[in-house]
């Protein structure tokens, strides 16, 4: 059986005719061609497929696409500017060598993006605990934690700077 669903991904609406058993990650990758989101375990533990669903990090392998009709889905492809300019989080990952093979990276980025949006004041220890949600086989995690922590600090500083200027 084929089902018609409408998905909103990175602000763009898509109409799809799919089998309802298709998971969100397969639909993103294979039906929409958004191959930045990776598949690592298909049972919700490695986190390579982490995307944002209405702003919250979620495992795209544990959701059927049909379930998230009407939700706002965001994937790694939404982070950089269309001209390829990386966002602050992506730049921090590069500066701290928070990626090697790059396979876990999109999931780590979306996990961090969703978490920092909700908890901008997160401490490094809290960030470490959140990074523990996803598996990385290359880095030993330290530089991922440092990259996210650095990004959070820079965002806080920028926010403070903005406040200072608006009150000055």
């Amino acid at each position: 059986m084929i089902q018609l669903i409408e998905l909103t991904v990175n602000g763009e609406r898509h109409d799809l005719a799919i089998e309802p058993r298709r998971t969100l990650v397969d639909v993103l990758r294979h039906d929409l061609g958004l191959t930045g989101t990776h598949v690592g375990c298909e049972h919700g533990i490695c986190g390579a497929c982490t995307v944002l669903v209405d702003g919250a990090p979620a495992r795209a392998c544990l959701l059927f696409a049909a379930q998230v009709e009407g939700a706002e889905i965001r994937t790694v492809e939404s982070l950089a500017e269309p001209d390829g300019t990386l966002n602050d989080l992506q730049r921090c990952f590069s500066e701290h060598h928070g990626l090697q093979c790059g396979f876990c990276t999109p999931g780590m980025l979306m996990l961090a993006e969703g978490y920092l949006a909700e908890e901008p004041e997160a401490t490094k220890e809290e960030i470490r605990e959140v990074v523990a949600s996803n598996l990385c086989r290359c880095t030993g995690y330290q530089t991922i934690v440092e990259a996210i922590d650095d990004c959070a600090s820079r965002r806080r500083a920028a926010f403070q700077d903005q406040l200072d200027r608006s009150t000055a």
Binding site: G36, T37, V76, L86, F93, S94, T105
Partner: peptide
């Protein structure tokens, strides 16, 4: 880094 961070690698 740029391609891998942007989700534009090719695995």
């Amino acid at each position: 880094d740029p391609r891998l961070l942007a989700g534009r690698g090719r695995f």
